[in-house]
Amino acid sequence: MRGLMVARNSPASRVPSHGTELFATAQALDLVPVDDRGRTAPVGLRALLVPQRPEEFPGFGREVLSPAPGIVHAVHDGEADHPAHRGLPSLRYALTQSRRAAAGWASLAGNHVLIRLGPPQDRVFLALCHLRRGSIEVVPGETVETGRLLARCGNSGNSTEPHLHLQLMDHADPVTATPVAFDLPGGLPRDGGLLGEP
């Protein structure tokens, strides 16, 4: 993504990063877009009591670019971008997480793109999740280069606010895959670390 982002649920500070080994998420990263003041959205009493429209967040609709070259393996679109949940609404939302997990990975990932990275023998897959409904610009079998527009940031699937969930795994099926750690120049972002340029 372009612009400022904050790293959340990063394996730089804990493994498993998302509190579970399920669906190969142990090494996943969440990148939450923020405004030039480092806020994901204005916080007020109303935001702490009721869900917010995803359009209120600076990341909603932000371009999601391919971070690496590869071949699009799979695409899933059509899931609604639901309201964001902070404060008390996030507690109510958390109580429904087991239902989403029981429905499977697609229910958690929401709209997503799965890219096979590197030469065919490498078999490393990158999942980019929680994309905006109707925004995916690529199709299975398409070759993508670094920087190619894939979709736009949304709030689909198991997401409390618009953000991009990324995970690497050794198989296309997250149910049987093993997570693969990110190897980023300069190391992994710390939780709460600010990335990008305004």
Results as ranks from 00 to 15, higher is better:
Asp77Leu: 01
Ala103Gly: 09
Glu63Cys: 03
Ala84Asn: 05
Gly110Thr: 03
Ser135Lys: 08
Pro89Ser: 12
Ser98Tyr: 15
Pro89Leu: 13
Leu95Ala: 15
Gly134Phe: 04
Glu79Asp: 10
Thr96Phe: 09
Gln121Leu: 13
Ala109Val: 04
Gly118Asp: 12
Gly110Val: 01
Leu114Thr: 09
Arg133Ser: 10
Ala74Val: 02
Gly134Asp: 03
Val75Asp: 05
Leu117Trp: 08
His73Thr: 03
His85Arg: 14
Asp81Pro: 11
Ala109Gln: 07
Ala80His: 05
Arg99His: 14
Val144Phe: 00
Asp122Gly: 07
Arg133Leu: 04
Val138Gln: 06
Glu79His: 09
Arg133Met: 11
Ala109Lys: 01
Ser90Pro: 06
Tyr93Ser: 15
Ala106Asn: 14
Gly134Ala: 02
Gln121Ile: 11
Pro120Ile: 08
Pro89Glu: 11
Ala74Asp: 08
His82Cys: 03
Gly78Pro: 00
Ile115Phe: 05
Phe125Ala: 00
Ser90Ala: 14
Val113His: 08
Glu79Leu: 10
Glu145Tyr: 09
Gln97Ile: 13
Arg116Lys: 14
Leu117Gln: 13
Gln121Ala: 15
Arg62Phe: 05
Arg132Asn: 03
Ile136Glu: 00
Arg86Pro: 12
Trp105Pro: 08
Pro67Val: 00
Leu88Asp: 06
Val138Glu: 01
Ser90Leu: 11
Ala74Ile: 02
Pro89Met: 11
Pro67Cys: 02
Arg100Val: 13
Ala74Cys: 01
Ser90Val: 06
Trp105Thr: 02
Phe125Glu: 05
Leu128Tyr: 02
Pro140Ile: 03
Trp105Arg: 00
Ala68Met: 10
Glu145Val: 09
His82Ala: 11
Ala109Asn: 06
Pro140Asn: 08
Val113Ala: 09
Gln121Lys: 11
